[in-house]
Design a protein around this nucleic acid. Structure first.
Lengths: 340, 340
DNA sequence: AGAGCATTCCAAAGCGCTTTGGCTAATTTG
DNA sequence: CAAATTAGCCAAAGCGCTTTGGAATGCTCT
């Protein structure tokens, strides 16, 4: 059933039917009802390829997926996707993943924009002065950044959580508990979120006249193994930290293992706080010692990004609005006063 | 730069240019070269929307993503995606995720087929007599199932791993080590993979005149917490199992925690083997006691599925070829002879 | 030399939609 | 009451590609 058939069967022109269906005003209410009715009854669905060719709109949002033998997609991605899907489902949006060579995402961005394959894109894991962001900004496609970049002379729309604030609060709590030697096991410090977290910790320390020693900060990809290694190195020093802040639950698994291997105990020997993106399959309260966390649902973020993208596509949202979500600090058994 | 402009600038018809570019034979080699050349020089890229409208081919593969507030996307998905992307990247394929209400995926399948939105789809986590599979089969779109279904009177193309064989081998090893009371902490037993694994274990037990007691099998969604709970229940029985087979690494985390909470030790009190889909961020060799696994890279499966989908789209692959990959049994410290 | 056949190209007709620019009839306005 | 709007509809022209059905050219063959 296409437009031609439908209009013929209604003895109307394609123009009128199209307009009736798309809510244009130059059609009488009675006709519109008649058209709507027939369309529903016959299950008419406009052919998206045709519509796209005519309008340039695709009803899809895009994401450039960095791939490569050495590239691992972050497991957080799937949770974000869950949220995105939750929203998109109710709004007839599909998501296009365009795989790109991780060393050359630019080509792919240019392609999907030139081809008008998607109506909007979102970027994630931005770095300071991220080239993708600059590119997408000049290409003029609606977009939203999940996370933040820095060092641009233009503003852009983003959704981020208050990483700095979260880690500032967490560090402040530890300091108030008497800890003086904090360590930070961070994610890739070329990404903004990691920079912000470090900043938060440093600020809290500075406020008490303390500092974060060079040896007390590790920046690694967030795997269990890297968490373990980082923790071992930290704890085997001559002056080991009495508290560790950790950028992910998965790394925290490794930290816990390291602590155990060294015969230490949480929280009496070491306080631990990790960031929790809220995975359904790994929960901080179920750690051997319930884990204190800075918590923010990445899934909700996904839904919100989808919502804002939709708003941008339809012109409801404009400008470079940044949105920063507060992060909960959830205290559980893994923190205690500094050992004497 | 569109076809019209390009052909005009070459003083050729659109027909000829189009044919030259698409490798049709009715154009002289010299002309073809000239056209190809000009196209490259001017960076001509055919507009996919137009091409799609004309041909019905989209250059995308589809996946219907079940969503809903209570629906969690499996973290395995992201690894599979990695593989899929690895292949797709080199072959100009994009992936379209169409979010669907988990209770009604059918509508979405119908939509993406009717709209010719994608050239092929893949299904994952199939159940016996899975309705999606039957649907997609009748709809006539090229597809591949990742996993297997059962109970159909037709064949279909799939890629699966030998779940039954893997768990059969694992169980057999444990039995040979003297274990008589095995338990299985399985995934959702409405999914075929879980059924196959159970079948493998039962077959191994039966071969030695043993059985899998009703209380010794748990079927749960694969979270750390569920692994923990299942393990506790099993181990607190009057006649606890001396060996556990576990369907995922994430659940195995929970099992290990439970074992510890109960003051038991792996492998002297309990042998443990889990299935490993090979995550970069959680590796069995890094478990407190290195974990024995049945191992199969879900990422490679993703790449292979993409490869086969591409082959099906281009007509290189036809028919209902099933492909079953063997699974490695990797023995590490977590297994030992049965306690006396 | 004329029929028969490749070869190489082209004009034009789709694909199914949106949108522009009228056209008619009903309504309002001075 | 004629003139000017307005409401409601339509024909046709895109959007940019592929593909069908020739047409022209040069060649071989009898």
């Amino acid at each position: 059933m296409n437009l031609k058939q439908l209009s013929h069967m209604l003895s109307l022109s394609q123009t009128t039917v199209s307009r009736a269906l798309n809510g244009y005003p130059e059609v009488s209410e009675e006709t519109r009802r008649r058209v709507m009715d027939a369309a529903k009854r016959h299950g008419y669905r406009p052919n998206p390829s045709a519509r796209r060719l005519a309008t340039g709109k695709s009803g899809m949002i895009g994401y450039v997926l960095p791939t490569g033998a050495a590239v691992d997609i972050d497991p957080h991605f799937v949770e974000f996707l869950s949220g995105l899907g939750d929203y998109a489902r109710g709004h007839d949006l599909d998501l296009v993943l365009s795989p790109a060579d991780a060393d050359d995402e630019e080509t792919t961005y240019r392609r999907i924009v030139a081809n008008r394959q998607v109506d909007a894109v979102y970027l994630s894991s931005p770095r300071p002065a991220d080239r993708r962001l600059a590119l997408v900004n000049t290409l003029g496609i609606p977009f939203i950044v999940h996370g933040r970049s820095e060092g641009f002379d233009f503003d852009y729309p983003y959704l981020d959580i208050d990483n700095e604030g979260a880690f500032h609060e967490a560090a402040r709590l530890l300091i108030q508990l008497g800890h003086k030697r904090l360590a930070l096991i961070n994610g890739n410090d070329r990404e903004t979120f990691a920079i912000h977290r470090e900043r938060g910790v440093r600020r809290a320390l500075a406020a008490s006249g303390l500092t974060l020693g060079e040896r007390h900060i590790r920046s690694v990809t967030m795997t269990e193994e890297n968490g373990y290694r980082a923790a071992r190195r930290l704890l085997e020093e001559s002056e080991p930290p009495t508290a560790i802040l950790c950028s992910s639950l998965i790394m925290a698994l490794g930290v816990v293992r390291a602590v155990r291997d060294l015969g230490l105990t949480i929280p009496s020997d070491l306080s631990l706080i990790a960031h929790d993106d809220v995975f359904p399959w790994l929960r901080p309260e179920n750690f051997p010692v319930p884990l204190s966390t800075t918590r923010s649902s990445i899934r909700l973020a996904g839904a919100r990004v989808a919502e804002r993208l939709a708003a941008r596509i339809s012109g409801l949202e404009e400008g470079a609005r940044g949105e920063v979500w507060p992060v909960d600090l959830v205290v559980r058994g893994s923190v205690a006063g500094a050992p004497v």
